[in-house]
Nucleic acid binder design. Structure first.
Lengths: 241, 241
DNA sequence: CGATTTGTTGATCTTACTCAATAATCGTGG
DNA sequence: CCACGATTATTGAGTAAGATCAACAAATCG
């Protein structure tokens, strides 16, 4: 097996797209990274990847399925922090405290790779590209969070849902999946929770967008019929992240 | 001058508390970091540290004063992302794209240290503690942003202002300044913008909290009279962060 | 197949926004 | 140092966006 084919295995089967972005690492470097990655057993819907309070030891890459990350507030309510799709990395918020301050729960049958953080630390000392890559990944996470902040601080319910759908669409496109027809792996209540809206509002806006001919919604299946209108509603330029 | 005294200079005069957290770096390592830090000239109120679209080359540590970071949305409106106080680091959100996607503006006469990111990259290859420390700093920034997300998604106006004041109070305390009496360096409109509230709402809630005997507000000066009540309003345990 | 969860729709209510007027503060130049 | 205009903050009245409550429909699951 050549390095090239190993790389292919690494990126495609293990969802390491995120760790193996173009021009970041050489084939041999990726090979080294690949050796420390543990392929985990599949998670069933509702199973936990990690929970609040647990020791942090690894970050995770979603290989298939989807993961919801949330905290529990003082009233015992879930507070959704994010949704993670195949190829995306989670768990990086626990590096600082070495404790998970959030819970990661599988929203469907999912499979996840575990990447021990100690190994990343070791490797990123010797592989300078990996160190730079980790800095970039963490920095990007910060920017993504900041964008959500702005969404929550200033946007109307319609703009939030529009931006949320556009964001999902672009993420699926990056994964070489359809950007116009996809399944929402999360419940309406999770969307509302994440966007700071009541479930009923989410439902109403889906219906309204359907009436306007922008969307077709059928349960968890969504089809974007008029991408341009959706961009306008979301106040997002089509090319953005 | 001994290493010890140099360390003192570095941390106290240059606001490098953040880069020099206890147990992170040895004296000699801090010394090495210290050598790449550029002490910048003071910024006047309203001056810019960096602007949207500029090339990213450094991160910055606030030595004195305070810096507001914001983006400009499609309607040309400011969107405040954060406020940075002495000892805090900013600019880390640009590592990924190598372009500043936000603007940093001084809210008063401030002084700031510049830390070239290339130097950090170089040093963090040789100083493993620094690499770990950078990972922690970036990770912490992610958690701070996530906390704000939750604030914006679920909390009432009163809870937001309460949490904002408690947060400032704790940050001043960490800087060995009074946690009960301090100056708000930002305008009411900036607070509202940051917390997703109208200026008028901020004003009204300050007045209400004053009437309740929780605060004393006099222009930009704030005194927390009843810390426990403020915690209750904010739904924050006193020890957090 | 019935039970439970999840989603939709309608009616009403509340919070915080908008608009408007006034007051206080700041900065500048005489 | 004070007077001026400009910016910033406060307060009030009316409004609107979205929350809540409630009833029902659809999907999911054992």
């Amino acid at each position: 097996m050549t390095s090239q084919s190993k790389f292919t295995v690494s990126c495609q089967q293990c969802g390491l797209n995120e760790l193996c972005l173009p021009n970041s690492l050489t084939i041999d470097e990726m090979d080294e990274v690949d050796r420390v990655v543990k392929r985990g057993k599949p998670l069933q819907r509702g199973e936990f990847l990690y929970s609040t309070g647990e020791d942090f030891s690894s970050i995770y890459a979603v290989r298939s399925g989807s993961i919801k990350v949330f905290t529990i507030d003082d009233e015992g309510e879930e507070q959704v922090i994010g949704f993670y799709l195949p190829g995306e990395l989670l768990g990086m918020d626990a590096i600082d405290s070495r404790l998970h301050m959030s819970t990661a729960k599988s929203m469907e049958t999912s499979s996840v790779c575990e990447i021990p953080f100690d190994s990343i630390e070791d490797l990123s000392t010797s592989i300078r590209n990996l160190q730079m890559h980790m800095y970039k990944l963490l920095s990007r996470e910060i920017r993504i969070d900041q964008e959500l902040q702005m969404l929550l601080a200033k946007k109307t319910a319609e703009e939030r849902i529009g931006a949320f759908l556009m964001n999902l669409s672009m993420r699926y496109e990056q994964r070489r999946l359809s950007s116009t027809r996809f399944r929402l792996p999360m419940a309406r209540s999770d969307i509302g929770n994440y966007l700071g809206l009541a479930v009923e509002t989410v439902s109403r806006i889906f219906t309204r967008m359907q009436t306007m001919g922008v969307l077709r919604v059928e349960g968890k299946e969504v089809e974007i019929l008029d991408r341009q209108s959706l961009c306008n509603i979301a106040h997002v330029r089509d090319e953005e992240i």
